[in-house]
Each structure stands twice: as C-alpha cells, then as structure tokens.
C-alpha cells in the first residue's frame, strides 16, 4: 500500500538551553493511504505535537513531513495554508468552531477561504449523514457537544481532503456521543477512501483503528 504521509527525522523542541523540552525526537513514521490510524500515548508524550506537525499547524525544529513527494515543511505560509485547506481536514478535541458563525457558515468556511463554490448536493448529503442538517442555522453555543463535533467533522470534510487529522475528537464528549463520532469518522473513511489519523489516549478507541502508532516521550515506540 502507498504511504500518504512520511516523516523523516522529525524533531520538535520547545525552549532552549536547560529549559529545552524535546516534544518530539527524531521521529520517522509513515502512514498508509486509506487507513484508519490511531496515535496513542500518555499525556505529554508528544502525540498532539506530532499531529500538528503532520498537519503543518506547527513548525518542526528539524526533519521533514512529506505528503507523497511533497515536503510541507519547506513551504511558505501561503503555500502551506493552501495545501492544508485542500488536502487536510482537522478535527479538534474542543471543536474549534467559530462562535460568531452559524453551523452552516462554519462548515462552508474552508471553501469560502479557497474561493470555491460549494457543492450543495455534497454539502446536503454530508450534513444529513452527520445529522446536523436541521441545526445548520444554529450558532455553536446553541449546539450540544456531539453536534458541535459533528459540525467540526463536516467542516473538515467539506473540501474532500485526502487526510483527516483528528486530535482526540471524542475527548470532550460522553461515551455515547464519542462512539457516534467514531462511527461517523470510520464511515466517512470507508465511503470516501480517506486516510484518518487520530490522536487518542483511550485504548478502546485505538483498538478500533487499522493501525496503531504508539509514542512515548516524543519517540515512536511501536508502529
């Protein structure tokens, strides 16, 4: 199977000198296309850092993150932003919805940024699948946690990205809502053939993934 993302000697250090914290050390890992992959580890192990570096949300101290042949860490901000909005979808633990915008506006926002006209059929199908079609005119504060996360997933999927990066997407939800979100992610991955990389510290959730990448103290210990 073809690797969609590969990292080479990826390192991230916060601070300098004696106060330096090595969040990620010489990390070499690859992710297969079309798989549902879980990154697991204890708190502070560096799993979120890895996910942010994979998505270009953070800059690495050294090393490379390659999507196929393309190294995203060499891109400037404008190129990286464009690459991200077209190829990567993000789902965060705290949803990161913009409170001033309605659910519909939040979902369509990436397309607007990219100046792309939304595919209304796809949008309708996506929101219906995610069960938020009747909540589109609501603001995030008027939605439940599960609905907010499903809105965030819709936003991540609206431009049909190749890779979906999820940072503990169920961490802020009850078990029932969490499971619903997981099922949805799995279904989307299967229907759309996307690669889903999910950070979690929940062993049960991780067990539902095709692959598990374990990380401890900033190092990949098992792939």
């Amino acid at each position: 199977m073809k690797n969609v993302i590969t990292t080479h000697h990826l390192t991230k250090t916060y601070g300098s000198g004696e106060a330096a914290v090595h969040a990620l050390c010489d990390c070499n890992v690859s992710f297969e296309e079309g798989k549902f992959i879980a990154i697991v580890g204890t708190s502070g192990s560096g799993k979120s850092t890895l996910l942010h570096l994979l998505g270009g949300l953070d800059t690495a101290s050294s090393g490379e993150v390659c999507y196929g042949e393309t190294s995203i860490l060499k891109m400037n901000d404008t190129e990286l932003s464009q690459f991200r909005r077209r190829n990567i979808g993000f789902v965060f633990q705290f949803f990161n919805l913009i409170p001033e915008l309605t659910a519909e506006e939040n979902v369509l926002l990436p397309l607007m940024i990219d100046k792309v006209k939304p595919d209304r059929t796809y949008f309708k199908g996506l929101t219906e699948t995610l069960g938020i079609s009747n909540r589109l005119s609501h603001y995030p504060s008027q939605l439940s946690g599960g609905q907010q996360q499903r809105t965030a997933i819709a936003r991540a999927l609206i431009h049909k990205p190749k890779v979906l990066l999820c940072d503990e997407p169920t961490g802020n939800l009850d078990s029932k809502s969490g499971q619903e979100v997981l099922n949805l992610l799995r279904r989307m991955q299967q229907d759309m053939g996307q690669t889903v990389i999910m950070v979690t510290h929940d062993a049960d959730i991780a067990s539902q993934a095709d692959h598990i990448v374990r990380i401890e103290d900033g190092k990949i210990v098992k792939e």
């Binding site: 949300l57 404008t78 932003s81 909005r85 913009i98 409170p99 990436p110 940024i113 991540a156």
Partner: peptide, 15 residues
Amino acid sequence: QNLRRLHDIGMSVFE
C-alpha cells in the same frame, strides 16, 4: 482564538 481557527482550516497568515 478565532484567527487561529481560521489559520487551522487553511487561511494563510498573509490572508
């Protein structure tokens, strides 16, 4: 926070 969210979903810093 909102600006960061926009950046996360693909709006460049320049934009």
